[in-house]
Computed example of a mutant assay.
Amino acid sequence: MIDEIPGVNMADLRLQGFKVHTLPAYVDVPAVHGRRDFYKMGLITGEMTIGYGDEVLELRDTVLFFVNPRVPRSLLRRSRSTAGYACIFTDAFMPAIVKKSPLFNAGQNPLIRLNSEQAAFMTGIFQKMLAARDGDYAYKGDLIKSCIELIIHEALSIQPPVQQPFNGAARMTHLFMDLLERQFPIEHTAEPLRLRTAQDFAAKLAVHINYLNRAVKTVTGKPTSIHIAERIVAEAKALLQHTDWSVADIAYALGFAYPTYFNNFFKRLTGLTPKSLRKV
């Protein structure tokens, strides 16, 4: 479900698939947001702290930001002089570009810092989108898509993704990580996590478990089981902090047969019990 956003007509977003707006200069702090079912990109200048997944990012200059809806985040503005623009769009509105672009990769830092010339250029594109939004051009949706694509391509030219050798091990690791991430977010308690062990992933990928483990460990330095456990813990934290599901419902949704198993798993990896995290 799409949460309400100050200054944004959510009905229009649902209907059109996109929304472009100017960011307000000040939002009461803290402004906290969970996961949403849309992508977001923007240009922002100010001082703030952004919680993105398990990372805490400090912002004190002008940046482009790219938000993946699968990653829980929170926002704390610490300056009344914050300024900028944002564009929100659904996967249905821009399916190709969001799936191909590494900028929306859940594992990437979502911020790209800009110099004054780059910031001025990006400002012009966002202002073009705002003008299209308010105009009566019959193909404004296509024009907005073109602007989004231009921003993404310019951002990639400013900060190209690090290219890794794509050998057999790298390819297998990419397939594993993609399959792991596709299981999230967990949206309903009636649709529990299906792939929870290295053996489950090996079977799904039609490879021997030893080959999968060796490939993942070679490329990432961590065993397959650790990647799975860390991702389940990250999802558990998001569900505990951003839903009102019971601990038992969360346990079952994450594939645990009994809540006790989930409690022990969570405490072993985080040092906290699920209930204590909710009190933080």
Rank of each mutant, 00 (worst) to 15 (best):
A155P: 05
F201H: 05
R113T: 14
E181V: 03
A215Y: 07
D200K: 03
D200A: 05
K222H: 06
D136Q: 10
A198E: 07
A206W: 08
A131C: 01
P160I: 12
Q183P: 09
A203V: 02
V207L: 10
H208G: 05
L179R: 13
A198R: 15
K128T: 10
L150E: 14
D142V: 11
L175S: 04
P160K: 13
E117N: 11
D178W: 04
L130P: 02
P165R: 07
E181A: 11
T224K: 09
E191P: 00
A155R: 07
I186F: 05
K140C: 05
F121K: 13
T220W: 04
L150R: 15
E181C: 01
A206N: 14
P161M: 09
S116F: 10
P161N: 06
F126V: 05
R171T: 03
H188N: 12
G107A: 04
G221Y: 11
L179V: 00
L111I: 15
D136H: 12
V216K: 08
V216W: 04
T123R: 15
N167K: 01
R196S: 02
Q199F: 10
A155F: 09
T218L: 10
Q127C: 00
R196Q: 10
M122V: 09
L114T: 08
L193M: 08
D136R: 14
E117L: 14
F126T: 05
A190W: 06
A206L: 12
P160S: 12
Y211V: 09
D178N: 07
H188W: 11
A170Y: 01
I226L: 13
A206P: 00
I209Q: 14
A170Q: 03
A198H: 06
H174R: 08
I112F: 08
T218F: 09
M172N: 03
Q108I: 02
N210K: 14
P102N: 03
E181M: 06
L111Q: 05
E187A: 04
G141C: 10
L205M: 15
P185K: 11
E191D: 04
Q127K: 15
R196I: 08
A169Q: 10
F176K: 03
L193Y: 10
N210S: 13
N115G: 02
P102K: 08
V162M: 10
L111Y: 14
K204N: 03
P160V: 11
F121G: 00
L179T: 13
Y137C: 00
P223S: 08
L111F: 15
E191K: 13
P160M: 10
T173Q: 03
N167Q: 02
A203I: 06
R196N: 07
G135V: 07
Q164N: 07
M122W: 02
T123S: 14
K204M: 04
R196T: 09
T173M: 02
D136L: 07
F184G: 00
E154Q: 15
N115Q: 01
A203E: 10
G124C: 09
R214C: 03
M129D: 05
N105A: 08
Q199L: 12
I226T: 11
R194L: 06
K100P: 00
A138V: 15
I158S: 03
F184D: 00
A119P: 00
D142G: 11
I158C: 06
S116E: 14
R171K: 14
M177E: 05
T123A: 13
A203F: 07
A203N: 12
L205R: 11
D136W: 12
K145W: 07
I148P: 00
M122P: 01
G141N: 15
L175W: 09
Q118D: 06
Q183D: 03
A138D: 12
